[in-house]
Design a protein around this nucleic acid. Structure first.
Lengths: 236, 236
DNA sequence: ACATTGCTGTCCGCAAGCGTACAGTACATT
DNA sequence: AATGTACTGTACGCTTGCGGACAGCAATGT
């Protein structure tokens, strides 16, 4: 079957990959929205009302236990869509999701996505394959959390963020990073200085610039790359 | 619509939850198999040929990076099915899966499952919801790996294993546990002794017995429970 | 200009866990 | 009963990272 490009009106990689038919089935429900910093996208164990096809910026998916502890388990940028639980047919999740780098996207009621997926096998296929890539990302995060040093995990995070940002400048504070990585704020400062001394990044107040992408990849010692390769394989 | 129980011939929770129609669509492809210790169920980046509905024992899903490092990201017992990637429409995954506690199950070609899922919305729903629960488990593992001490993670692992075992006796060596948790073998010995001194478990050569389930749950400090509650919510 | 607020760098003592090594102990085999 | 093999307990020095604290340094607003 011939696959026509859906539309040039969005930079979201999933939407732009859909067949025209699939895209048209979603289009009536899509509403452009701003995604301001820290905007809550999903709240733990609350019904998910909307999913967001991200076009610019990115969101963090954060797991938390019964205690106050929490940690990031995944990043979603223009390559993806929020609401993995919805794609999986659950209407909520114990994880939180919020905007980590301001941008914009297309919002859609979860119920409509669910319905459209029920009707189109090809739409299902695309969304579930993205879901698979996201699961791999989460698994790799679990691996990194268990085995890697802070500076390695930081390098990985910066790379993943950079993949989803416009340029190589990331407006992020150490405080935020420490929450994402589940480490002390001071720990981030130290790790970032290590990366900076190696000439891999340049850190200013509230901004991190990537200088040496390859160098960063190398320093993660394998923690970066697996999830990205899987995404590449499926979405080329 | 009335949902008839599928069959009493299997102790697998997913199969036994399916409608008769859905079960019948799978039944011709299901083959009973032994699941001996360490049997490889999936190999990283190799095409997944079969999925296994576990009936006894459990399997570990293990993520590994480009380096030798690896760590467990999920457990699959009679509550589930291996091959999350297949359910998501991918034919392989960078993760490995192998049997961790010997048992048995029902094997089925991945392609047939994929086909059946395409044809039945209700089958899809059940399998994807299990997939969601598994993803939550992985996210909680990432959380525990980032924030918890070895003895807390060990307690969590023992609880999850116990949920999937027949009784409260787990035939496991420290060596295995250390690989699962991504820590030193000696680290497991020490952590296990701590749990034993608190009267929560009893450890003999190659066997761990759970003595105080509630106590173990408490010591995990919230790392155990979230994923289990989500499963409970969806599969009651 | 000044104060306020938020961000960053650094320091301390301390706990957790690592890598490594080695001795002791249960079990299996013959 | 003897021997070999796997499994377990423990020890040592070392690195990482924590919790907490504090001072210096932008940016912002009035």
């Amino acid at each position: 079957m011939p696959i026509k490009p859906a539309s040039t009106t969005t930079s979201n990689r999933i939407l732009s990959r859909l067949t025209r038919e699939d895209f048209d089935s979603l289009a009536p429900h899509l509403v452009p929205v701003d995604l301001p910093l820290r905007k809550p996208i999903e709240t733990p164990n609350k019904v998910i009302e909307y999913v967001y096809f991200v076009e610019r910026g990115f969101a963090s998916v954060v797991a938390s236990g019964q205690a106050t502890r929490s940690i990031e388990v995944g990043l979603i940028g223009r390559e993806g869509v929020t609401g993995l639980a919805v794609i999986m047919g659950a209407n909520r999740s114990p994880n939180a999701t919020y905007i980590q780098l301001a941008g914009r996207g297309l919002r859609m009621p979860a119920a409509n996505l669910h319905g459209a997926m029920d009707r189109s096998a090809s739409l299902r296929r695309t969304l579930l394959q993205y879901g698979h890539a996201f699961v791999v990302q989460t698994a790799q995060t679990a691996l990194a959390n268990g085995h890697s040093k802070v500076e390695e995990r930081l390098a990985r995070w910066i790379l993943m963020a950079c993949d989803r940002a416009e340029g190589s400048e990331l407006p992020l504070t150490h405080e935020f990073l420490s929450i994402m990585l589940g480490v002390r704020r001071a720990g981030v400062t130290v790790a970032l200085n290590i990366l900076e001394k190696k000439g891999l990044v340049r850190a200013r107040r509230g901004v991190i610039s990537v200088l040496d992408r390859k160098g960063l990849e190398k320093i993660t010692d394998g923690a970066y790359g697996v999830a990205e390769a899987e995404f590449q394989r499926l979405f080329g």
